[in-house]
Design a protein around this nucleic acid. Structure first.
Lengths: 205, 205
DNA sequence: CCGTTTTCTTGTTCCAGTTCAATGCCCGCC
DNA sequence: GGCGGGCATTGAACTGGAACAAGAAAACGG
């Protein structure tokens, strides 16, 4: 929890998140401000655990800059990464956040990151105060769900080489930013096999 | 679309859906009624296509009785079932519903079913009128997302026998209600392999 | 600048799950 | 009430990707 308290933000830029929210559903200036006031800006260094499996996740984080990863650990200790959250994405363990239950996933920064946190309590009371926010977050969750359905389908229906090609199309910048074995764990394959895939492609081209 | 118009419901029971909604978030009696008024009850016979891939899905359906399945088709024509919706579940192609885009999934009844439909238009105007409904549906979508995350994780991290065992624990009644090859496609394995798994288990016991 | 650690590659072996094929089965249908 | 077509089972051959092992190469802290 240390990382939540140590660092004081200076010079926080709320431009990106404001546009992000407004793109979902219109908010009056006052409503938007009420939300922004309740955000806690945090600078978090590279490779810091934000949430460890078993803890309760009482925040959602908007990534203003940097890169964050959420992942599960299977019984053999291999990780399955659920999401890479880059600039302009949210990250959280939603199940733990809403139920108050211990989380099954872990979350960590991969780069020095600037996050904007909203706490569960604040979010609840803001919803009561500003119903339009309820709409914004409903829409965000819906998008999330649609995206995960796509991903699920791809993971079950497509072979690994296709999945990797698709991944490169959609996230061309990621391979330069995150270690390869994490991409492998996102694709649901071993690091060794991803390396072989890349070898094959390079050989061909 | 024929199935949407032909059949007039008599004797619709709104008890289950009322309890379902109230369990998410409190609604005043008047608010609940406004919602119920906008539902279209439909009796749909077994093995009827409710949505074909490529069509736009402008409804969400609450399953009052019966069983409905949503699924994708991969390039080889094999299906990947996303969900079995039994009594007290919702089914829809949420991506198509919210974006108005052509659906990638298909939806069909597996049994004679009684559905309660809410149309996109009605839902939108109800949200404007009754903000509490926005909350109800935000919570429903959140649950859905959490459930899909679990499923995704299980599919990637667990071997097929575990997945099948888990499936039986969670849905003990389903094998009696739906054909085995659809369960296989839910589990992400071939029908042949599921049959072999069952053989192994029966042999042991 | 060097030692340590993490990351990536490459090769070999192995296995979970697929594919293909054949057989029997049950169930709906004229 | 017989028969045709989806549905389940079983077996044999095959394969995509895992596991294991061992090096090379970055990255990194001191």
């Amino acid at each position: 929890m240390g990382w939540l308290r140590h660092l004081r933000a200076v010079d926080t830029d709320f431009g990106a998140i404001s546009r992000h929210l407004q793109r979902c559903a219109p908010l009056r200036a006052g409503e938007l401000d009420r939300f922004l006031e309740n955000l806690e800006p945090r600078h978090v260094p590279k490779r810091t655990a934000l949430l460890r499996a078993g803890e309760v996740c009482d925040w959602e984080a908007y990534v203003n800059s940097g890169c964050v990863r959420s992942y599960f650990l299977d019984e053999k200790g291999h990780d399955v990464t659920l999401q890479f959250a880059l600039e302009d994405w949210w990250v959280s363990d939603l199940a733990s956040f809403t139920e108050g239950s211990p989380s099954r996933m872990s979350i960590e920064t991969l780069e020095d990151s600037e996050l904007l946190l909203i706490r569960r309590e604040q979010k609840e009371s803001l919803f009561a105060e500003v119903p339009a926010l309820e709409r914004v977050f409903r829409i965000l969750v819906q998008r999330n769900l649609a995206a995960l359905q796509d991903r699920f389908f791809a993971t079950v229906a497509q072979p690994a080489p296709e999945r990797y090609a698709e991944f490169l199309r959609r996230h061309p910048s990621l391979p330069a930013r995150v270690p390869q074995h994490m991409i492998a764990s996102y694709l649901g394959i071993t690091p060794e096999f991803l390396s072989k895939l890349r070898g094959r492609i390079a050989g061909k081209g």
